[in-house]
């Protein structure tokens, strides 16, 4: 039933833009160029959202600005019988590693430090790459975009851990754990980087190689 290969020579894949069409990114339907609202699902359509780069950078900067205090201020305030303890994200992970819980320390470090930093770098790289020529292959950049989209949410895990611990460990005088100010900054940072990644129009990744203007079809 499914279309069979018609010819051995692979044809160049055309984008909707090159065919004079604009596509709905929610429901995949094609419309004549210039249509603004998808007639099927009502989604707003733009052929390429060039203004999106501004939103990407705006969210990116806010996300980064929130990420700095998230690492400086304490994430958790632990009060036990003998001591008051305030630990930052990295401090908490180091402490876990001292107790021998390397696996969990690694999860925390990866989710709260490695992933956010890699994400800032990746989004910046993608946003710059659509303006400059040939920084990496299209498929490599698209893969990067998908990873960023998929993995960014998982940074929220640290916030959930803080929420769980703070509600669970309320043992009167024995021990209490309360969220520190870093938790809010960290959550905001994750949310803004998610918004930044979502604002990025991934279709632009595939544009530059085929040349933005009308590529010459010769047969």
């Amino acid at each position: 039933m499914v279309g069979m290969e018609l010819s051995g020579t692979p044809q160049k894949i055309l984008s909707a833009r090159q065919m004079g069409l604009v596509a709905c990114t929610r429901c995949t339907k094609a419309w004549p160029m210039g249509t603004q609202i998808c007639g099927r699902c009502g989604h707003k359509m733009v052929s390429r959202d060039y203004g999106s780069l501004q939103r990407v950078w705006a969210f990116w900067v806010v996300g980064l600005m929130c990420y700095i205090p998230a690492n400086i201020y304490p994430m958790l305030r632990t009060k036990t019988l003998f001591q008051n303890d305030e630990s930052t994200i990295v401090g908490g992970a180091v402490e876990l590693a001292h107790h021998g819980a390397f696996g969990v320390a690694a999860i925390i470090l990866v989710a709260s430090v490695v992933i956010p930093l890699a994400k800032f770098w990746a989004i910046a790289f993608l946003a710059i790459s659509v303006k400059t020529r040939r920084m990496a292959s299209n498929s490599a950049r698209h893969f990067m975009y998908e990873v960023v989209e998929y993995i960014g949410r998982w940074s929220m895990i640290d916030i959930f851990v803080v929420a769980i611990l703070s509600s669970l460990v309320q043992l009167k005088t024995l021990a209490t754990i309360n969220p520190g100010p870093a938790s809010m900054f960290f959550a905001l940072s994750v949310i803004f980087t998610m918004l930044s990644a979502q604002a990025f129009d991934s279709r632009m990744i595939w544009d530059d190689r085929s040349g933005n203007g009308d590529s010459t079809h010769n047969d």
Partner: peptide
């Protein structure tokens, strides 16, 4: 037609 929502291929 169906257009890929991620990369605009038709």
């Amino acid at each position: 037609l169906i257009v890929c929502p991620q990369c605009d291929a038709v």
